[in-house]
């Protein structure tokens, strides 16, 4: 299938990109790796007038320790997250999650910023960053602001990002050796490169859920129970509280609730070394 025609710009800096976004408003769309945008454009579900390609901006392509955080340029590809030595040491959950996104070809192109911006509740990385208590750094001609990921998502495919803003960085707390309760990622699919039917990212007693509602969610009841000293089994049994899982050909909401509990238990057990 073939996208509707559009104009194309490849600005040579973030500032130039922001100026274009400001100029064209909602007629323009940002293209980074293109693996969220181009599929919907090919199905003609999206038809922007201008595509602004930020995929080559090296200033968005870095993964480095920055104080108590690891700062990840929004243009970092899934493959780069997967093999990052900094992340392997400091935030090992993220490479483990990135490794399960799509397939190798998709991971060579797709970016972490694009994945977070697309706001698909079935996407893995948003739930992982949520479990990590990460921050999303947004920049616009008006300046830069950091939004905790817990406040970033507002619904299916929607976020608090303003039309003139661009995700430039994702910050996640350095964990590494400080992890008291470990980390794990459980992803349940029918086929290896399917979207998760349900996914669970666990880090340091926090639990992020994939595909259990209109946004990535935290299993707050589970987290609270763990903090109160509940057993893993008992805490995991609360994982579907305050979720609103979807129905589709792969799963009923009831089945997703069940999976969320089972996967949460397994992830917590793995994280605790058990």
């Amino acid at each position: 299938m073939i996208p509707v025609g559009f104009d194309y710009a490849r600005p040579d800096s973030v500032d130039a990109a922001l100026a274009l976004i400001a100029e064209h408003g909602e007629d323009a769309t940002i293209l980074a790796g293109g693996h969220s945008l181009l599929p919907v454009m090919k199905l003609r579900l999206a038809a922007p007038e201008l595509v602004i390609d930020i995929g080559r901006l090296t200033e968005l392509n870095y993964i480095r320790v920055d104080g108590d955080d690891v700062a990840i340029g929004a243009g970092s590809r899934h493959r780069e997250v997967e093999v990052s030595e900094v992340l392997a040491t400091e935030v090992p959950l993220l490479p483990a999650v990135a490794r399960t996104v799509g397939d190798p070809q998709v991971r060579h192109r797709g970016t972490i910023g694009g994945s977070l911006a697309h706001a698909d509740p079935a996407s893995d990385l948003p739930a992982a960053v949520l479990a990590l208590n990460g921050m999303v750094v947004l920049r616009s001609p008006r300046g830069e602001r950091s939004v905790p990921i817990t406040q970033f998502y507002t619904g299916v495919f929607s976020t608090v990002k303003e039309p003139d803003e661009l995700i430039v960085e994702i910050r996640v707390p350095r964990a590494g050796a400080q992890l008291s309760q470990g980390w794990a990622f459980e992803k349940f699919t029918r086929r290896a490169n399917d979207w998760a039917i349900v996914g669970v990212a666990v880090v340091d007693g926090r639990v992020g859920l994939v595909n259990m509602g209109s946004t990535p969610l935290r299993a707050s009841a589970t987290e609270a129970a763990l903090a109160d000293g509940a057993s893993i089994e008992d805490a995991a049994a609360l994982a579907d509280q305050a979720t609103d899982p979807p129905a589709d050909t792969a799963a009923t909401p009831q089945y997703r609730r069940h999976l969320a509990k089972v996967l949460t238990r397994r992830a917590l057990q793995t994280a605790s070394g058990g």
Partner: peptide, 8 residues
């Protein structure tokens, strides 16, 4: 025999 059907 999908996971859903087996579970059900």
């Amino acid at each position: 025999t999908t996971p859903l059907r087996v579970w059900e």
